[in-house]
Design a protein around this nucleic acid. Structure first.
Length: 479
DNA sequence: AAAAAAT
């Protein structure tokens, strides 16, 4: 894929990051000590025996907490076709799909050998002639992104220098992440270009863009299609809604998403993907998508089997903070995300943690986009171990080393009711692609205990108490 | 309440 200025900037950042991390590896080279035991010199150089002991305790705590069943791949896929008479089939290999050679090359270059469960069923429908509309629900980390990127890339005509595929994401960070997948998978199309319709990406007025694929957030995309006329929506062939439930929910980005959708041509293919669809949203989805095919991965609660869930009982925000500090040694063994309800709490918590001498990163919607891009990049590279954030990072953000999610505030909607979908998405940031994960919920009142109990009932999955003052009890619970 | 816009 030809790189535009934005993509080039990303490439340069990556190259710089790579050389930095190589340097880091050299410094950290593991070598045996005098007794033949292998230690990481830089990790223990300035630590006292006491601190080392704490480190070991934290490591063993983490290992016990996240020990869990391996992924059970027995999830069943349910497929409802818009034409029940046409043959139902799934593919077991990418070759069967007869993709263009450049696309197949891109698929293999990304390390995909065979389709995932959702891809087996979704790809034949999406690539059928004529193109089919699809509403698909499957858990976090099952390959939804690759599925719809493949659909866009197989429909696109690189020779036509105007936007033909449009993908909407709920946040800036997710748009960047998905854009990277599009760039990687499409890199063997020499003439293909991708445009990012996100905040801060300002273009010169008065001309159309030539990129064949556009990824973006709703507000900017709407502007590009209507007021600024950078995009001719009538020429869009494939329209993708990622995290579709929040994109069409009244509480979410419904207005803008639907306004964009109405500008598209009648025969435009519509693809809706999400891990969750609350009942009312599911009904609305089937109303706005003409003749949809529907794919559901049964037993959504299976997701939770690879994630150990706990709660910590406190009586105030300050106590939650203390409990979090007690846990800190354990959570920083790998990477962790800490979710707060408001931007204000997030920035307060990040400040308090750094006052305690902990290195943390902060990410919320009140920050400038340049800053947000830099923070998420540092977190991805592992330069930041702990990310304090809001619901901006609840969905889709995929950082492999994240093994701990902490709900400093439980997810609630605007009426103060438990937000089960957001809960599932948040803790789904860990335990991705079959890895194990740990979720810790901080409770600070009768009210939030009630919220937690309702979440527990909704998923019918025990959330156990964790006492961060008592290491013995932690061990006991972990066993 | 958060996110999302060149308003």
């Amino acid at each position: 894929m030809a790189t535009d200025s934005w993509a080039l900037a990303v490439d340069e950042q990556e190259a710089a990051a790579e050389s930095l991390s190589n340097l880091h590896l050299k410094e950290e080279k593991i070598k045996p000590d005098a007794n033949g035991a292998v230690v990481k010199p830089s990790a223990n150089a300035e630590k006292t025996d006491e601190e080392e002991k704490e480190d070991r305790a934290a490591q063993s705590l983490l290992n016990k907490l996240i020990r869990s069943n391996l992924v059970d791949n027995t999830n069943q896929v349910e497929v409802l076709q818009r034409d029940p008479n046409s043959p139902l089939y799934s593919v077991k290999s990418f070759e069967e799909l007869r993709l263009k050679p450049q696309l197949l090359q891109g698929v293999y270059a990304m390390g995909f050998n065979r389709p995932s469960k959702i891809q087996e069923n979704a790809l034949p429908l999406m690539l059928a002639e004529p193109p089919q509309n699809l509403i698909a629900q499957s858990q976090s980390g099952t390959g939804k992104t690759a599925a719809f990127v493949l659909a866009m890339l197989s429909q696109v005509e690189p020779a036509n220098k105007y936007p033909q595929c449009l993908c909407l994401s709920p946040t800036y960070e997710l748009a960047l992440q998905t854009g990277k997948v599009i760039e990687q998978m499409g890199k063997f199309y020499p003439a293909l270009k991708l445009a990012y319709a996100v905040r801060g990406n300002k273009l010169e007025r008065g001309q159309k863009i030539s990129e064949q694929i556009v990824i973006g957030t709703p507000g900017t995309v709407l502007d590009w299609c209507s007021k600024l006329k950078f995009i001719d929506p009538k020429k869009i062939k494939v329209f993708v809604l990622d995290e579709a439930d929040v994109m069409i929910a009244t509480q979410g980005h419904q207005d803008q998403s639907i306004r964009i959708q109405r500008m598209l041509p009648r025969n435009c293919q519509m693809l809706l993907f999400s891990a969750t669809f609350e009942d009312s949203v599911w009904k609305f989805a089937q109303k706005v998508v003409p003749d949809p095919n529907v794919i559901k991965l049964k037993r959504e609660e299976e997701t939770l089997d690879t994630i150990k869930q706990y709660y910590v009982l406190c009586s105030s925000r300050d106590e939650k903070f203390q409990a979090l500090c007690n846990l800190y040694g354990a959570i920083t063994i790998a990477q962790a995300m800490i979710f707060c309800h408001t931007r204000k709490t997030a920035s307060w918590l990040a400040a308090e943690l750094s006052k305690e001498g902990h290195q943390v990163a902060l990410l919320s919607g009140e920050m400038m986009v340049e800053q947000r891009a830099a923070v998420i990049e540092r977190f991805r590279e592992g330069k930041e171990k702990v990310l304090v954030t809001t619901n901006v990072c609840a969905r889709g953000i995929d950082v492999e080393q994240v093994s701990v999610v902490i709900n400093f505030d439980l997810p609630v909607d605007k009426d103060g009711n438990p937000d089960n979908e957001t809960y599932l998405h948040r803790i789904g940031r860990t335990g991705r692609f079959g890895k194990r994960g740990l979720a810790v919920n901080m409770v600070d009142s009768k009210h939030s205990m009630n919220i937690l109990n309702r979440i527990q009932e909704h998923f019918n999955k025990k959330i156990e108490r964790l006492d961060t003052d008592d290491l013995d009890e932690i061990e006991k619970i972990a066993n």
